[in-house]
Design a protein around this nucleic acid. Structure first.
Length: 269
DNA sequence: AGCTCATGGCGAG
DNA sequence: TCGCCCTGAGCTG
């Protein structure tokens, strides 16, 4: 369930539970066993997150680079840790806490230069203080690619996933098929500022809520959304349901191998 | 038990 | 653009 807000939250959670302590590192599933043996007993001293990439910094051996992909999950608990199931790629344990990583696309031990190379190929991240929206704007404003695809391109902007892309385009009334170069600078600045606010709230609440106060279920007199991703949204996974604002039907279509959702009435070409 | 789908991303063609 | 990788929940039978 990972967009950038999840990863930044996980970074903080690792630091809170494991930072400054020696950590027992194992790979019950076996695919990370060699690196786990190298790391076992070292101190986790720092963490980092950029977009959907998580980095755990160990004192001597470099960084554990984790990317959850679509299916990956991290589960935390307090010791004693239960017997690991066979899908646990990485388990961290200290005196008080454990963390189990399952199903990641990436779990690898990397060096400082390798970590730097990952940062270099990622665009600015709305959740990284000081990241520069101009870098993203330069690419967006010169591209004939649709803004929906550009928002999902981690080289352009890091951390936005399928939910935030659909929701931020709705909130700004922008047709997802509009070319990047047809956005105005003011529109891009507003999208970036909105993503900073929305994603920070996502980190805080551990869910994605994008519905403005005046459109919440309470304010509109409709039942709260019940869905496995939790948050209140305008269009994401609401195909064929009525738009909260105009009542028109939410549309869905495939775009770049993902499902896109939008309201054609509220998001004019 | 088997199918489908999911907040992701890579490489081959 | 497609196939593939990773896991698990929620269906259907």
């Amino acid at each position: 369930m990972p967009e950038g807000h999840t990863i930044h939250r996980l970074a903080e959670e690792h630091l809170a539970r494991f930072g400054g302590h020696a950590v027992r590192v194992t790979s019950p599933q076996g695919k990370f066993s060699d690196s786990a043996a190298l790391l076992d007993g070292q101190v986790l001293h720092t963490v980092d997150a950029h977009g959907k990439h998580l980095f755990l910094g160990f004192a001597d051996s470099g960084w554990v680079h984790i990317h959850l992909g679509l299916f990956g999950k991290l589960g935390f608990g307090t010791t004693p840790a239960p017997p690991p199931t066979e899908t646990v790629r990485l388990r961290l344990v200290n005196h008080a806490h454990y963390a189990d990583l399952r199903g990641p696309t990436t779990c690898a031990l990397i060096t400082d230069p390798e970590k730097r190379a990952i940062h270099e190929r990622l665009g600015p991240d709305p959740l990284r203080n000081g990241d520069d929206p101009d870098r993203a704007w330069r690419r967006v404003s010169r591209s004939r690619t649709t803004i929906a695809a550009l928002l999902m391109d981690q080289k352009v902007i890091a951390g936005v996933g399928n939910v935030y892309r659909a929701e931020v385009l709705f909130r700004h009334g922008i047709d997802p098929y509009r070319a990047g170069k047809d956005l105005t600078r003011a529109q891009w600045d507003a999208i970036w500022a909105d993503l900073v606010a929305l994603m920070r709230e996502g980190v805080r609440n551990n869910r994605i809520d994008t519905v403005r106060p005046e459109h919440t279920p309470e304010a509109m007199g409709r039942p709260p959304r019940v869905d496995d991703h939790g948050g209140e949204v305008y269009v994401y996974r609401r195909a064929h349901l009525p738009c909260h604002i105009c009542g028109g039907e939410i549309r869905t279509a495939g775009l770049a191998a993902r499902n896109l959702f939008w309201c054609p009435a509220c998001q004019k070409p």
